[in-house]
Design a protein around this nucleic acid. Structure first.
Lengths: 162, 162
DNA sequence: GTCAATGCAAACATTTTGCAACTCT
DNA sequence: AGAGTTGCAAAATGTTTGCATTGAC
């Protein structure tokens, strides 16, 4: 689902992040540098815990609070975005190399499918125009059963109770 | 945005709830009865705190834990549904009398507009079919600026920083 | 040297849970 | 009578914040 991120992509993201920080009088610290590389190297959806583990395995010691603070910065400068699936933690994904997409979430096994959202954006713009709303973005998820779960339970064909 | 709920509507919801509970060997307690009437009488989006306040003002003493537990039951039997706007608490709305709709959320003032989602459902079904996903429901929100906020800030035309 | 960032622990907010007392059926 | 329910307080979770120390520019 995600394309590999090359060293060149990382360098590009780095300059975006540096410029963003410089414009705001903020510093490009070692922790921020290593966090940027970490989020760029994780191609699935990730949460704070995952980043902490990745950092730990790579031998970097970064405090939990710093991870929270830096993820917010990375989100604000458009390198990552929040994707939420109803769990209580916040999940993110990096944007680079990802075509615009939304998600289908299987209510039985939790699997997540991505799909191109061009049609969704088009519909969104149409709907927004109708009520004179200035649309900037959206959140869209389709909930249901993935093919495997649907086929494996022909009897009930009901999602698991939660 | 919501239509008034008549006594008759409440009686209908009551029988749905009772039957749901009976089928599962659970009890229709005084707390559950009063909570059902409370959620049916609130026509905006509400959270746990709001229900607690409503109950208190009506002179009913129901524990916080019971409110959490009962909202889950009411959700499972389809009388209310979760609607989330990125805040940390969970918000709900009752379904009765509401046409199927989704929301547009103003990122500046927080105002929430509802809109008919028939077209969204249609698109969802089309998209799901394409990837052989068995769609059951969806979550969709359009984020941006409402008409008033868009007009009132011709200079920046940017959402408030968060 | 200055001002911002970090790490830690404490604080917070929301939701869940264990359990003794209680109440529908 | 018996099984499920309640309220309370404690626990669990995820995230934020205060502050002394450290580090970038």
């Amino acid at each position: 689902m995600a394309k590999p991120v090359s060293e060149e992509d990382i360098v590009t993201a780095e300059s975006v992040f540096r410029e963003f920080l410089r414009d705001r009088g903020q510093k490009y610290t070692g922790e921020r540098k290593v966090m940027l590389r970490t989020v760029m190297s994780v191609h699935e959806h990730f949460d704070v815990e995952r980043i902490l583990v990745e950092l730990g395995q790579a031998g970097h010691r970064v405090g939990r609070a710093t991870v929270y603070r830096t993820l917010r910065l990375l989100e604000n400068c458009g390198i990552i975005k929040e994707v939420s699936f109803g769990q209580k933690q916040t999940y993110y994904e990096h944007i680079h190399g990802h075509a615009a997409h939304d998600h289908m979430v299987c209510r039985r096994c939790g699997r997540i499918l991505e799909f191109d959202n061009a049609a969704v954006v088009e519909l969104r713009k149409l709907l927004a125009r109708q009520v004179q709303f200035h649309d900037l973005s959206h959140r869209f998820q389709v909930l249901g059963l993935c093919r495997a779960c649907w086929q494996s339970c022909p009897a009930t064909r009901k999602p698991a109770a939660r």
